[in-house]
């Protein structure tokens, strides 16, 4: 709050002298996000660089030294992280300090590099059942709960998805999944989405690391909706997928109004809108109305978008009483 505003409020008698004093105290300048970003970039560069370094030196004597360095750094990070860590609890555990978060992250990333190397060079886990991806995933998942780390949890989730053969990171979810050439991916996506949504639901239901629910649901909702929509667009029995879509939509709608989440509400409404519009357009296309079809389509979009705008405005009002993300 700036000086001007404080004066204005206290002149109108809206601020008690004590609050005025508090507000006028000189503020500290927080460099939190600047330093955190540097730390994050450092972890990104270091773990990436070490990965390439081992890869490039694979046939020389140097790579064992590098590997040793990675192993030692990784172990050191885990030891530090473990020493400073607060005791485990089923609820949210705050990090002892902000730097600690990135030590945990670095430790986990280096561990993955290490495991991958061992697998590639000595084939320690064998080649069956994708265990080379599954075991790091388990380690990540355990670390996420043990250290209470959302970033590691989301790494575990993307690894789990990779193990199932699907990409769920924001950039790759549409570009890297070839739903049209490999329709099995659609079912994988639905299964993965269902698993993640269940995990989110259970975390909340049994109050076990409740704050992880958002991350589970966020990945789950997108892959689930996208896979079901892909099923509608590409498979013959599209109407079945449409029914599934409606079911999921109803569930997400219920959940988002329970949690008072604007984000999930908006996503649910938009995905459902895409699904419904596809059904209408498909029907218009197959009834051969020529120009009339195009007219009807345009009228449909204008009318339905106006309706959805109204719906969103009403939902906004409903959720606003107690807002969160």
């Amino acid at each position: 709050m700036n000086q001007r505003l404080i004066n204005k409020l206290s002149e109108q008698g809206l601020l008690s002298p004590e609050s005025r004093e508090k507000l006028l105290l000189p503020r500290l300048f927080s460099v939190h996000w600047e330093v955190t970003t540097l730390l994050y970039l450092g972890v990104l560069l270091l773990s990436g660089g070490l990965g390439i370094l081992v890869y490039k030196n694979i046939d020389t004597i140097g790579h064992q030294v590098i590997l040793l360095a990675i192993g030692l750094t990784c172990g050191l990070c885990f030891v530090i992280a473990n020493k400073k860590k607060r005791p485990f609890s089923r609820h949210k555990v705050l990090a002892p300090n902000m730097g600690w978060d990135y030590i945990v992250l670095l430790a986990c990333l280096l561990f993955i590099t290490f495991i991958t190397y061992l697998q590639a060079q000595y084939n320690v886990f064998g080649t069956r059942y994708g265990s080379a991806t599954f075991i790091p995933m388990l380690v990540l998942l355990f670390s996420a709960y043990y250290f209470d780390h959302l970033g590691v949890l989301s790494l575990a989730i993307t690894n789990f998805a990779a193990w199932m053969g699907i990409a769920i990171t924001p950039y790759e979810i549409l570009s890297n999944n070839a739903f049209n050439t490999d329709t099995r991916l659609i079912y994988t996506g639905v299964l993965l989405g269902a698993i993640l949504m269940t995990a989110g639901y259970l975390s909340e239901r049994f109050d076990f690391k409740k704050h992880f629910a958002f991350t589970y649901d966020n990945f789950g909702v997108h892959i689930l909706f996208i896979a079901v929509l892909a099923g509608m667009f590409l498979l013959e029995f599209y109407y079945l997928f449409f029914l599934v879509l409606c079911g999921i939509g109803a569930f997400c709608y219920w959940q988002s109004s329970q949690r008072k989440s604007f984000y999930f509400m908006m996503i649910t409404v938009l995905y459902l809108y895409i699904g419904v519009s596809y059904m209408i357009l498909r029907w218009l296309f197959y009834t051969n109305l020529d120009l009339g079809g195009i007219y009807l389509g345009l009228f449909y979009f204008i009318g339905s978008a106006v309706a959805v705008v109204r719906l969103l405005i009403v939902q906004n009002k409903k959720l606003k009483t107690n807002d969160s993300i």
Partner: peptide, 30 residues
């Protein structure tokens, strides 16, 4: 923190795939 978790997943996602015999992560970090 929830937003940061998504960024972490996006930037560090290149992890070993079962069929790629040797591809390390971090290539996007440059």
């Amino acid at each position: 923190k929830a937003a940061e978790a998504i960024i972490i997943a996006q930037t560090f996602h290149k992890t070993p795939q079962p069929d790629d015999s040797f591809k390390f992560g971090g290539g996007t970090g440059g």
